[in-house]
Amino acid sequence: MDVLNAIVVLANFVIVPATAYGAQLALGALGVTLIYGILRFSNFAHGDTMAFGAMVTILVTWALQAAGVSLGPLPTALLALPIGIAGTALLLIGTDRLVYRFYRQQKAKPVIYVIASLGVMFVMNGLVRFIIGVDDQRFADGERFIISARTFREMTGLSEGLAIRTSQGLTLVVALICVVALFWFLNRTRTGKSMRAFSDNEDLALLSGINPEKVVLVTWIIVAALATTAGVLYGLDKSFKPFTYFQLLLPIFASAIVGGLGNPLGAIAGGFLIAFSEITVTYAFRRFANHLLPEAWEPEGLLQLLSTDYKFAVSFAILLIVLLFKPTGLFKGKSV
């Protein structure tokens, strides 16, 4: 019996990574849910938008690194992030002007937007592959750890170590800032309020003189900021590979739907729910159990519910359960 070590093992392999991953998913899901609330369609290009934002940031980071600029212990990518956001915002606004605005004027059915977003996804994916290629790119620099496993062991005298990577701590801080800023914007500013009004009741909003084009423009800029931040944080934490970003689409959608599409608070809760279930279900609990159980009872197997390759199955299963029992999501979102 060694409760403390068991908790540390759990924190090291489940809680810390899941919190970071959950924050990344939440940022992604916030983007999806905003587009859904304002423009009323599920944006399949969101994963590739994240990839594009991360790519611009990486290119700027490399330029900064080459120029010898650095943030000391923090990754240089933070400095490049605003430029990445600006680049992505330009791309998204351009896409809106060229693609989506036409369908808005036509009052097309939502599914037409979704198909258009497929086309956009193709183009963005092609652009990213064209510019940076399909390979893994590493762009993290600065300190690797806030606490490394060895320091933690020396500090506490426990046999298990707890490592917190800079990218994980950074993810949480940046995500928190983003979310606070977003909620402040939505609830306190005039533009934010008009966005919420537009999302709640489009006709009423138009009647009160809200300019829909401005609302859409602001939405795309915010989405660009959220997507780029999510993409860069994910890239810093894991690594940047265009195809993984496409695959993130499923957990992100699952987070947004589980929380209730169109509901920002739900997107955050959904992100953490999906991340924690994914990691808990695919984590091998053997070491955790070894600390808790008497030696004679030590388990033979890995105590892993599902192999990590099935992590998509977890988000999918949660998605199915929510769709079956509560199609509007855990927090009240829009349906139909």
């Binding site: 369609f41 979704v114 959608f253 699952a254 390759d309 998509f312 999918f316 769709l323």
Partner: peptide
């Protein structure tokens, strides 16, 4: 059975998911 009868993009997301899972099963 699960996704039809809900909004149209839910079916899209559900099919996206089942495809990933089928592929994961085939690979593993």
């Amino acid at each position: 059975k699960t996704a039809l009868g809900l909004r149209s993009d839910y079916l899209a997301i559900a099919t996206l998911g089942i495809a990933e899972i089928i592929l994961a099963v085939l690979k593993n």
